[in-house]
Simulated scan of single mutants.
Amino acid sequence: MIAYFIPPEKLGTPPMSDSPWELLPTASNHAQSLDGLYILLTAVTGISFVLVIGTMFYFMWKYKMKSEDDKTSPLTHNGKLEFAWSAIPAIFLMVFFVWGELDFVKLSSPPADSIDIHVTGQKWYWTFEYPGRPVAATTEVEDGEIAPLLVVPKGQAVRLTMTSKDVIHSFYIPAFRVKKDVVPGRYTYVWFEATELGDFPVFCTEYCGDEHSSMLAVVRVVEPEDYKAEVAAATTLEQGEGESLEQFGEKVYKAFACNSCHNTDATRKVGPGFGGLYGKSENLADGSSVEADENYIRESIMEPNAKIVAGYTPQMPSFAGQINDEQLNALIAYIKSLK
């Protein structure tokens, strides 16, 4: 599983509307119906606000006490009026419920021929895995930075099977109007059919820790005939021609989200910094010490809870079965190069 923690400023400007009074781009089959419900809710509540507050001020003005001799009207109620102000809102509430329920059922019931993609949430990044591909999808977004990438074909149904490794996250694509909680210990599902080509931002909308706001990714909508090639390109992590082992190791470091928890200098983050780590004597939580050589670094990646550095808690997941020997050797070479 490969993903990348990326600061918001590196993602670029999301393709949002030019004006705060405009709706977001509509880039999926769900967007138009949900926008219609949103507009109806806004219109009804806005009109209701004006009517209620306006009537209140009118009555305050018309029936204000003008003298000490003013008496309250003997009328106690108006049956027709009371029925109207109960029945009319009830009708609108039923319309809201039925419309929302139909959209919810549609959002939760993917077609049988949907493309299946597995999504994993973890502090603080997304992982997208495709059937038959050993590496999760990533893309270069800016200045050599890498972000998790969800590649989908235009006009075809895509089902996301989602789970979390740690806490509750919430997967949200604003332009698609798709949002679903991602829960540890179970699977949740959502589907969509993209209708517009281009790149669209993904957010986590459930507070999940310090770097919650940076838990970002990219959805790339491509033509159906380009889909397989785009997925193959996004799920390939190999040493390029003319690329040094350390340079490839830096790509692995970013692609496997090492920088979500480890800085490239000696400063601590969630875990220890990598700067000057190689050859250093590390004090462990059990009171012993160990030299940070190749074997220690390898063990820390494959079995991170075998030796916990003093002052840290066992939070790092194991990458056994996810990173191959070539990628691991390159990552170790990159860590060794950091001073």
Score class of each variant (00 low, 15 high):
residue 183 V to Q: 12
residue 186 R to E: 13
residue 187 Y to Q: 14
residue 188 T to S: 14
residue 189 Y to F: 12
residue 190 V to G: 15
residue 196 E to Y: 04
residue 198 G to F: 12
residue 199 D to W: 10
residue 199 D to R: 14
residue 199 D to K: 15
residue 200 F to C: 03
residue 200 F to T: 01
residue 202 V to A: 07
residue 203 F to H: 13
residue 203 F to E: 10
residue 204 C to F: 05
residue 205 T to I: 07
residue 207 Y to P: 15
residue 208 C to V: 06
residue 209 G to K: 12
residue 210 D to S: 11
residue 213 S to G: 15
residue 216 L to P: 13
residue 217 A to D: 05
residue 218 V to W: 05
residue 219 V to I: 06
residue 219 V to S: 05
residue 222 V to A: 06
residue 223 E to S: 10
residue 225 E to L: 03
residue 226 D to G: 00
residue 231 V to H: 11
residue 234 A to V: 03
residue 235 T to I: 00
residue 236 T to G: 04
residue 240 G to A: 10
residue 242 G to Y: 09
residue 242 G to P: 00
residue 242 G to Q: 08
residue 245 L to G: 00
residue 248 F to H: 08
residue 248 F to L: 07
residue 250 E to H: 14
residue 251 K to E: 10
residue 252 V to A: 02
residue 254 K to H: 10
residue 257 A to G: 14
residue 276 G to Q: 02
residue 281 S to Y: 07
residue 289 S to M: 08
residue 295 N to G: 11
residue 297 I to A: 01
residue 298 R to H: 00
residue 300 S to Q: 11
residue 301 I to N: 02
residue 302 M to T: 01
residue 305 N to I: 09
residue 309 V to R: 12
residue 310 A to P: 03
residue 315 Q to L: 10
residue 316 M to C: 04
residue 318 S to C: 04
residue 319 F to C: 04
residue 319 F to E: 01
